[in-house]
Nucleic acid binder design. Structure first.
Lengths: 228, 228
DNA sequence: TCCATATTTCGATTATAGTTGAACTGTCTA
DNA sequence: TAGACAGTTCAACTATAATCGAAATATGGA
């Protein structure tokens, strides 16, 4: 009847295919221009502009103007988390071309979710860290053990610095379907940064998929007993 | 492009005002018939039937047939949690009548979220239990202390029985805006059941708001130092 | 058996919202 | 200063999907 807050208004912002395409494109956590997003979503720039205005209005997305470009970005980690939740309960779309198929596989394989690792790699690494006793899963979050603290320090993470940050230190990236959990939060972000630094993974252009390098193959095997 | 899973299809199920109204009506965790839901959503029964079919198809809702009635219910706690998340980021609708206004206040005041307490009461109680040292907030969940164990036993909860259940024992009901957290999970459910049993709270007909009784006033004050 | 009630199915209508071409604003660069 | 490019605004069009009356189906009770 309308004594309840209207969920619909907020939700319908992501419940439309073009906007959803834009949002998922932004899931790599990077800035994108309006035209870029239009191309990624397969729509004309006017249409993208129309949708982006709505997304900004709903505080899903922020803009920064630099010269004649406007750089769009997800508003915050919460939005990213929410989107990832839905991605995990969504069905992958039917495959239309070989190229799309291999892209989809790459995404499933290893991808960034806003600022941490998701996909098979993200899940396997998280599992491994739990098995080694570096992390302990406690209901909806991970707790770092003393053993873990030592390990992450040795691995080159400045734990003290990460803990200082206002954001939650280590949390699971939830998905409602409970098909998998993976490490997010400051620790998750710190790790993925370190992987880039070590060149164990590299970004694939214009998607949020990442490639595992030769170095990475041996690195993940040696330090995490994870083989891909 | 469509190499990303289509978030839109799933999400758009809740991103429509009539369906959202139905879903929020189901947030009390109880069964409702199709006609009931139609009335609550302010639509004709045919329309409700149409939407309910979609919701069942999307596994947001389950049906049970008893005679000529069909009882609809939210599919599971995850869906409820997801909905509550969105409610907390949604704006309350403009008030059209005094009656709506007082209903909205009642909802904000004390309500059930699927099977546990939300609203001001839910939040205050949770805070109180943390302050007394019965619960400790650990990232995304609560941990029961020894002191807490004693308290809940004394309060008449069968902790051992609750822990046996397959569902998560104590978790926060997340909202993405982080405006508040409250206790959910088996413990949250156990508590609210006990409150009904003690007649500290009673359901208001046809909403998910609950009223605090005289008994409740003194009870919450005495045992939780929460005054309403 | 007949009627009342709960719900769904069907078909037609309507309204909403996404889409796009065309035109416009603003910025960079040659 | 002109021209190219990024992005937005406007207005018209279109398509999708919600809505509802009418009719059909199913169940319960008298």
């Amino acid at each position: 009847m309308g004594v309840n807050p209207n969920i619909a208004e907020v939700v319908s912002l992501m419940g439309e295919s073009s906007r959803a395409a834009i949002l998922t494109s932004l899931m790599d956590g990077r800035f994108h221009t309006a035209t870029e997003l239009a191309n990624m979503a397969g729509i004309k720039p006017q249409t993208a502009s129309f949708h982006l205005a709505k997304l900004v209005g709903g505080e899903f997305v922020t803009v920064e103007k630099h010269g004649r470009f406007r750089y769009y970005q997800l508003a915050n980690q919460e939005i990213a988390s929410m989107l990832e939740s839905f991605l995990s309960v969504s069905q992958p779309p039917e495959v239309r071309s070989l190229r799309q198929s291999s892209q989809a596989k790459a995404l499933q394989h290893a991808r960034t979710c806003y600022d941490h690792l998701a996909g098979t790699l993200g899940v396997k690494l998280t599992e491994s860290m739990v098995n080694f006793g570096y992390l302990e899963k406690k209901e909806q979050s991970f707790i770092m053990t003393t053993k873990g603290e030592q390990f992450f320090m040795d691995f080159g993470l400045d734990i003290r610095e990460l803990k200082k940050k206002r954001r939650s230190f280590s949390r699971v990236c939830l998905d409602w379907s409970e098909r998998h959990h993976h490490l997010a939060g400051a620790l998750g972000h710190g790790l993925v940064e370190r992987f880039f630094e070590l060149e164990w993974i590299v970004r694939k252009p214009s998607t949020r998929a990442v490639s595992i390098t030769e170095k990475g193959q041996t690195g993940f095997e040696k330090h995490f007993h994870v083989s891909i």
